[in-house]
Every structure is written in C-alpha cells, then in structure tokens.
Design a binder for these strands. Structure first.
Lengths: 132, 132
DNA sequence: CGGGATCCGGTCGGATACTG
DNA sequence: CAGTATCCGACCGGATCCCG
C-alpha cells in the first residue's frame, strides 16, 4: 500500500522533442491549471463556486480545463440529480499530488513578485535609457 | 542578510482577477519554462547548447524566454568577446529556486504519464462508445 | 445551475531569411 | 555562434446566445 513512491524511472525523456509526456507537462503548464487545482485542493467545489474562486476565468475555459482534468484522472465529476442540477468537482489522489506541486508554484509567484518587479525596473532602465 | 525566508505573507492574492502576480505565474506556466529552467538547473549553457538540450524549441521562443527570464532576474546572460561570440546563460539564485520547483513538475509529468494514459483510454471509451 | 455551440480577435509560436 | 526581423497560420481564450 504505497502511493507513487515506487516509480523508479520511466523510459520517457521529457527533453526529447516528441516525448508524449509533453502532453502532460503542457496540461500542467497551462494558464489556469495551477489556480483551478489549487482551489480544488482546499475542498471540492461546485461549478459556479469554482468559477468565482478563480477570478477572471471564463465559463468556457473552466469547462475545458475540468474536462481535461477529468479525462486525465485528476478530478472526479459527480452529478446530484437535484433541480437545478448540482455538480461537484473533487480531486482524485493523482490530482491532489499535482495540486500540491502547483500550489507551490503559485506561492512562489506571490512570494517572489516584489523582487521580480525590482529586477524588471532595473532591467528596463538599463535597456531603454541609453538610447533615449 | 537573509534570503527569502522572511516573507510572511504578501498582500497579494493570486486568486483575484487582476492580481499582478498573475504575470509571474503566467511566466512559469509557460510551454517551455519548465524545460529551459530545468536544463539550466544542471549547469550553465550556451545558446545553441541550450537549444539542443530542449528538444523542439525554436530559436525564436528560446530567445524570447531567455530575455523574459533575464528581465525577471531568473537568469544571467554573460557575453565573452570571442570570435565567434560566446554567450553563457546561468541561473540566478531566484532562478534556481524556480527551477527546482518546475523540475518537480516535469518529473511528475513523466512519473504519472502511464497512469494518465490509462485514464484517458478509459474516459474515451466511456464517452465515445455509447453513441457509436 | 451547469453547461454546449458559435463567432471572432489576439497572441503564441514555427519557418524562413538576414546580420555581425 | 548568437541572435534580429518578418510573415503567417493555428489555437487560445473571451463574449454572447442558447438549452435542460
């Protein structure tokens, strides 16, 4: 009874141009993935609830992401036959591990934002000024 | 003289629609970011060397990424006045911490690829078959 | 409420050609 | 070698309308 501890090494090399794993990396490296999985990491959400949690995401993109996540076994979609319909999205075990990883990325973005802003200011003044 | 240990909590909330931190998250959640920073995590690279290390990346995208990384203080760009010119890209401390994070994401993609493929097969047969 | 379908502009990103 | 510049197609993603 272990988790994903026993994956020694796959034959896949993600640095190779046609490695099929790129699909997965592209899914994770998506504009909304980190935020959606991050929100679901806290607790299961209903559709509209999730839409409100992730500020700025459109209904289309949320649907598209959730479908992809469901297909890849990252989230489960449960429909309760109420009126109006209630649909709950929750992370699978696999989705939870991805969520943990990506929440770290989100947190890194927040924690390093101020420093990055300063780097940008310094870079821009270095590149733009001389020519003036 | 501390590193980034003392960042208790920024006033930023990345789940808010107009949070400027989204810029940073978008940079990390880019198609090539994880692979480029991952390659640079091993050791500094010259341009062409890096291009070959990250299979499939075009010269344009590599340049674009490296410029953005340099601007945000993730990599340094060092030019040696040789003929032909030698340019070396290396991670800063900030870039190294981002690289560590993103390498975990790459490794997750590889480690979970097989399981995800099975999920897809099962999902597709469940969704496509019934209608025939 | 939880979507599907469609239209459409903007940007991503590859291919190519040229420079020092 | 290490780029810059340009063209251009693909698709990303928002807005809108509609349905059960």
């Amino acid at each position: 009874m272990e988790t994903t501890c026993e994956v020694p090494e796959s034959p896949w090399d993600i640095y190779l141009r046609n490695c099929p794993c790129r699909d997965v990396l592209d899914l994770l490296a998506n504009k909304w993935t980190a935020l959606v999985l991050g929100a679901l990491s806290r607790r299961p959400h209903r559709f509209g609830e999730l839409r409100r949690a992730v500020g700025g995401i459109s209904q289309k993109m949320l649907t598209q992401n959730l479908r992809a996540f469901e297909r890849d076994g990252l989230v489960t979609r449960t429909v309760f036959p109420t009126t109006p319909p209630t649909v709950e999205y929750a992370l699978t075990e696999r989705g939870a591990s991805a969520g943990t990883l990506l929440m770290a990325v989100s947190e890194w973005s927040v924690a390093n934002f101020d420093g990055i802003l300063e780097s940008r200011k310094e870079y821009d003044s270095r590149v733009m000024e001389p020519v003036g």
